[in-house]
Amino acid sequence: MNKAFPIIIVLIGLLIVWYAAAIGMNAQWQNDVYRRAGTTDVPMTQFVQDTWNQEKPVLPTMHQVMGELWNTTVLVAPNKPRSLLFHAWVTFSATALGFLMGSVLGIALAVLIVHSEAMNRSLMPWIVASQTIPILALAPLIVVIGFNIFTGTLGIPTDPARLMSKAIISAYLSFFPVAVGMVKGLRSPEAIQLDLMHTYNASPSQTFWKLRWPASVPYLFTSLKVGVAASLVGAIVGELPTGAVAGLGARLLAGSYYSQTVQIWSALFAASILAAILVISVGLVEKLVARQMGARPA
């Protein structure tokens, strides 16, 4: 209760601002509707209610978005293209695959960098530089070129090829926080902890598995939480420029083509709910692992 209270207060504040803004932003269209219908002397309460329930409002209201979410998840079979769950699943599978690829790549790079000064000097600047390229500029290239290579040269069917090219963008965004966090984590053991291994004449692989790796686990999970959110962004961005017909990104784009603002907002909400589920899941795994590793309860 003590935790929820401040959050609820902010939520109420947001809702008030939201509904007030909806009146202002939808007023002009509502007035046009009244003028065309020849309606005059609309009472204020009627006017407000009408601005909150337009079919294509400039700013849809909370209950409209929630209604749309309900209609496109619970009331539709999840295998139909009208179902948001279907689109969320498409985006999630690209996110998960990209997250997996990005995490493995990030950890592998960190291991190389920590164990070799040459790698540290040659790779690190490129890793940082890779993130300075705007992903929006890069995504169409990766999706188009990747898709063509996968379907043409490698002869992969279109669906897995589309999934792979989106996953590559996810991986591109998520490997960076994992690599940077893991470099820090693998270097986190104190000097005496490393000296101890030296006095045992431990091999580099023993030092890695018995010291560096477990010491890096808290850093790993912090990075994974950032990485999984970045993966979702990558998957959605990968769905935007390619005329994809499935996925939350495709829903966003289709909604904007046809001025379906309620659809855009519900896709937006679906994306943030998915992001929250992903980050919370990583957090849960983190808690389980921490308990397994004997961490002091917080």
Partner: peptide
């Protein structure tokens, strides 16, 4: 492995129980 070294700080690995910490050199050897 002619010597055992005790540092200024215990330098126990926090993710290992006490017996697992004592087992650390034994595992390595």
């Amino acid at each position: 492995r002619a010597y055992g070294y005790v540092f200024q700080a215990p330098a126990l690995y926090p993710w290992r129980t006490i017996e697992k910490n004592v087992a650390l050199p034994l595992e390595i050897m």
